[in-house]
Design a binder for these strands. Structure first.
Length: 204
DNA sequence: ACAACGATCAACT
DNA sequence: GTTGATCGTTGTC
């Protein structure tokens, strides 16, 4: 699917190339492992709705609720291949980076800006925190209907693409705390060898 | 009330 | 390969 953000400054659009699945109360890696709370409540609501949470006190992560109402479940959007609006993506990424300015010197910020400007277009949204930053998504987006064509942030089915690509399944990232049973489940899905997928190295 | 920690990222050795 | 930044959520007392 395509991820689209329309606002007064124009359009941002990208192709989702990496996701992870999160289940219900039995999934020890899922936020739904807790009883319904203020934060995860939306996960058991109707499907197609955005669930955004803050991780590590610093980054927002965008999820799509996937199961029928009453059954918790969501898909985390981990990486997007930018197609439209890359200039605005850079601006919003900088805004997120500058939140960290308190601990940084002026020189450090200048260097940070330099590095940011040197990030290749195809790496602008190569991680869940980066997807949210590039598309201007924060926790206030929780509850938005991503399937409504009138929503500023939404999903759209692209025209049929004749390209055939391999989707690779692997273990979810950063969930070792859940124990081997759940951490090793191959619930991370990515387009094989795609250069916009998250992870180290630019050699994709 | 309080302590611990995380579905991350970038800078560092 | 290791580590610091930073704060809302969760579990414990």
């Amino acid at each position: 699917m395509r991820l689209i953000r329309d606002d007064e400054t124009g359009r941002r659009e990208g192709r989702i190339v990496e996701v992870e699945a999160y289940g219900g109360s039995d999934d020890r890696a899922s936020h739904a492992r807790f009883a319904s709370t203020l934060r995860n409540r939306v996960m058991s609501g109707p499907p197609g709705i955005a669930y955004v949470y803050l991780v590590y006190g610093m980054y927002d992560c965008l999820n799509v609720v996937t199961e029928v109402e009453g059954k918790p479940g969501a898909v985390l959007i981990r990486a997007v291949e930018p197609l439209i609006g890359m200039a605005r993506m850079r601006v919003d990424r900088l805004a997120v980076a500058s939140r960290r300015r308190a601990a940084r010197t002026a020189v450090g910020m200048a260097m940070s800006r330099e590095r940011m400007a040197s990030v290749a277009d195809h790496r602008l949204a190569s991680g869940p925190g980066l997807v949210a930053a590039a598309f201007g998504v924060d926790t206030a987006v929780t509850g938005v209907d991503l399937c409504d064509p009138r929503s500023s942030l939404r999903l759209e089915q692209p025209p049929d693409d004749p390209t055939r690509e391999t989707v690779e399944a692997s273990a979810r990232v950063g969930v070792a705390y859940a124990g081997d049973d759940w951490a090793s489940r191959p619930w991370r899905f990515a387009i094989a060898r795609h250069r916009s997928v998250s992870g180290r190295g630019t050699g994709r």
